[in-house]
Amino acid sequence: MTAVQWILENLPQILELTVDHLLLTVPAVLAAFLLALPLGRLAVRLPRLREPLVGGIGLLYAIPSLPLFIVLPLILGTSIREPLNAVAALTLFGLALMVRSAADAFGSVEEDVRLAAVAVGHSAAGRFLTVELPLAGPALLAGLRVVSVSTISLVSVSAVLGITSLGSLFTDGFERGIVASIVAGIVMTAVLALVLDLLLVALGRVLMPWRRPAPRRAGSREPAQVGERGAA
């Protein structure tokens, strides 16, 4: 049986696993994003807290994923094979990346703009929602895209613990010696990452219509940079 045949025959199962994969990825990415917003904003508001907050949460990323899946039940009271446990672990990894992006994004909002927003009478909440959030939007989106891709590839690891996702195609394929299963898993993971990324970009275009890519003009590059680096 060729790989294509195997994939066609098992298509319903592959699609089911793709849905499982998404059900682990999307809540984790969303939770990481929503948690990172207030934390990132706080880090800008209180510069003293920035390093402990951003650096401290960033340290989570140094923790290997598989061991975290195993240690987390101890803190949460979940079971290792529970999807919620995986979502919690993935959220922590997402948060480790996203808090830094959020702090940088809110930090890039100019102080003058913030003061102007206060001067025209915005409340704190109104200023956050209508001034800071839109201005930080592009940088937030960039961070979110990184989190989305890395989460999708991280999810698969949980398959060795018995949590079903596209990673199950790797474990099943390895145990039963089916190359097509593993190839299908790799391809679907890449497709999923790409589709989710494109969706995020499209969402960014809809929510931030002022961010059209600027048309390229001849001579727009700084003359100092042209052709100098390649000379040696």
């Binding site: 891709v149 890395s150 999708i152 590839s153 698969s156 690891v157 398959a159 060795v160 596209l166 990673g167 195609l169 790797f170 474990t171 394929g173 390895f174 010696g177 190359v179 593993i182 190839v183 898993g185 790799i186 993971t189 890449a190 990452a193």
Partner: peptide, 18 residues
């Protein structure tokens, strides 16, 4: 970019079969 999106478990099991 491409290799970063590759799931490691997939690469390990694929090469292990070969």
């Amino acid at each position: 970019g491409v290799t970063r999106a590759l799931p490691t478990l997939g690469v390990i099991t694929l090469v292990a079969l070969a």
